[in-house]
Simulated assay, not measured.
Amino acid sequence: MPYWLHICIVIFVAYVVISIALYYLQDYMLFKPEKLPKDFEFYYENQDIKEYNLETRDGAIINGLLFKPKTESNGVVLYLKGNSKSIKGWGKFAVDFTRHGYNVLMVDYRGFGKSTGRRSQKAIKRDLQVIYNKLKEKTTEDRIVLYGRSLGSGFAAKLASMNHPKMLILDAPYYSLTKVTARYAPFMPLSILIKYPLPTYKWLKYVECPIHIIHGTNDKLIPYKTSIKLSKVNPKLTKLYTVIGGGHKNLNNFESYHEMIHDILNNNPEKIDLSTTSIHVKHSSKKSSNKA
């Protein structure tokens, strides 16, 4: 056997082995869950909470917490968290919404916290739709805000595309999870291998409510340019908010982030009469000739 052919076979076999490993190990690489015992008791100082457990049709249990505001409720924020830990740690962010009079419902995906069940993209999407339907039994859709953080941004976009919430807020979103993983494995056929493609850009096309995208300029995991690209998918309904110097995990440490959340949740913009603006004024690039 020629030496060059031997090398090609070795490379091909290695490529196949790595591809198989990526397919079966991606759950361990993508998700960093924190599992909690069934009898774990949640506690947050100065927070009024209520715990819920939802049994799905396949027997899984989805655990969630409802954080209640101290004032009359303005609605509910369904907060879809990132890919690490559990709502035990994520619960501290609920105050950013309860302070504005919103209930906040946080849930753990399958395999996170107290939630059980076999995880898949289809199963998580189905779970979240069931939860959304439960919210609709308690309130009207014009009082439901979808907030997706990092991993949760794709699921939030999918929910918004299939329902009619008051608004969709995406925090450090990705164009698609396939694009994110491609940065670390550029030569692998990820469009075939990845079990969680989460094409946020596809789902945003069908969203009919206001879309607010928040992203930090110093995000090393999901670059800021991703949100610029996403903001062009459904531009008439989308506003992009930039946290100068913000990274992937520290936006809540910036005053500007909290100002943005305040403006998004409390602002009631009036319809602008564009006929009174310069929107249709055309500027010529040609120099006019002056005749004597």
Rank of each mutant, 00 (worst) to 15 (best):
175 Y>Q: 08
182 A>L: 14
292 A>W: 12
144 I>D: 01
160 A>R: 03
215 H>Q: 05
110 R>K: 06
154 G>V: 05
42 F>M: 02
5 L>D: 12
17 V>M: 12
95 V>F: 11
112 F>M: 02
107 V>K: 02
122 K>Q: 15
22 L>D: 05
57 R>E: 15
3 Y>T: 15
220 K>A: 15
141 E>Y: 07
70 K>M: 14
241 Y>C: 05
43 Y>K: 14
138 K>T: 10
184 Y>R: 07
57 R>S: 15
261 I>K: 03
37 P>S: 01
138 K>F: 10
100 H>C: 11
157 A>D: 01
117 G>T: 04
156 A>S: 05
187 F>K: 13
241 Y>Q: 04
198 L>S: 06
31 F>A: 03
154 G>M: 02
77 V>S: 01
124 I>H: 01
124 I>W: 09
283 H>Q: 14
162 M>I: 10
192 I>M: 14
129 Q>L: 15
54 L>S: 12
4 W>P: 08
89 G>M: 11
168 L>D: 06
9 I>T: 12
21 A>Y: 14
253 N>Y: 13
46 N>R: 11
125 K>R: 13
99 R>D: 01
97 F>C: 00
231 S>Y: 04
226 T>G: 05
193 L>F: 08
73 S>T: 15
263 D>M: 10
159 L>Q: 05
254 F>C: 05
128 L>K: 00
38 K>Y: 07
173 P>I: 00
81 K>N: 15
152 G>E: 04
20 I>Q: 06
147 Y>E: 05
183 R>N: 14
174 Y>D: 07
256 S>M: 08
120 S>I: 09
227 S>R: 05
10 V>N: 11
89 G>P: 10
179 K>P: 08
1 M>Q: 10
166 K>M: 11
261 I>M: 03
20 I>G: 11
255 E>F: 10
182 A>P: 01
285 S>R: 12
254 F>H: 11
244 I>M: 12
174 Y>S: 04
209 C>G: 08
58 D>H: 02
286 K>F: 12
183 R>V: 13
216 G>V: 03
19 S>F: 07
